[in-house]
Design a protein around this nucleic acid. Structure first.
Lengths: 145, 145
DNA sequence: AAAATCTAGTTACCATGGTAACTAGTTTTT
DNA sequence: AAAAACTAGTTACCATGGTAACTAGATTTT
């Protein structure tokens, strides 16, 4: 997450960057502006997900399973390889999704260690109901062209 | 933080967005790409700060004080209004910075509640030593024009 | 000037990210 | 087939974000 409310003015950036990388102060300003815009977009998405009992991670777990074309389920380990998140964090998130009846976990028959994770009626309906708002937020963020 | 390792293909996005907002799938793809690029940039910055005993927040606190033109110090409450962070989080970060001799805290003479926060020799030197690398990371991130 | 309100900063607690180290099942080596 | 190595998932612990509620000093109301 990025925190600056007021970005440094071009003059401020120049004051610093002239010493280290003159002629790049404009690019630095652009990059900082981009960081702020995208951080703000991430916050908006987080708020939106929270208003539907989800989070960025919970949403992405559901989407990753839903978008799988040839199967109805994924192993937790497959989710780890698809999402940029650590195993323990995924494990905990999955546990809560199962408790909330948003995921259906079943022991795999072939591999005694593995668990298959599938969407439930509830999470299918939830995804359907929130995707429209999700796309709205993505497409209506200001200052990002 | 954003987690998708492999972004959905344009075909996947179309599969979803056609139902809700046809003709916007390309914009959605762009926005997701931007989110991923900036998340990756934020991770790079975090790693860089961590390698110098800092964090995004700790760095921004020091910068906010350093960039103040007419004063050598700020109140904690001023930092809260300049950085997009909650009071308790700032309070804790400041406490640690003082312990690490990167901030000098003094009771304000006029206002018995307030504390003035100034840089130390150590943090001034630290800022000088890391700014160059910071600008490098900002200006050399790929895929962001 | 006493009461009420506001403000600076902290404490307590919760959520969610991380790594290291563990259990237990599977696969590979020898 | 026993040992070693690998893999799936969890547990324990730490870091850092959040809100609510607190203390204490300053200010405003009455």
């Amino acid at each position: 997450m990025f925190f600056l409310k007021e970005l440094p003015t071009q003059a401020m950036i120049t004051r610093y960057s002239d010493e280290f990388c003159p002629d790049q102060s404009q690019q630095i300003a652009q990059r900082l502006e981009g960081l702020r815009e995208y951080s703000s977009l991430i916050r908006k998405l987080d708020d939106y997900f929270a208003s539907h009992g989800l989070s960025q991670l919970r949403f992405l777990i559901l989407m990753a399973i839903d978008r799988e074309l040839d199967r109805e389920w994924l192993y937790a380990s497959e989710l780890v390889s698809r999402l940029d998140v650590s195993k323990p964090v995924l494990s905990r998130a999955v546990k809560k999704l199962v408790e909330d009846a948003l995921l259906c976990a079943k022991k795999d028959k072939e591999d005694g260690r593995a668990v298959t994770l599938a969407l439930t009626k509830k999470s299918e309906a939830l995804l359907k109901s929130i995707l429209s708002g999700y796309f709205d937020i993505l497409t209506t963020s200001p200052n990002l062209e």
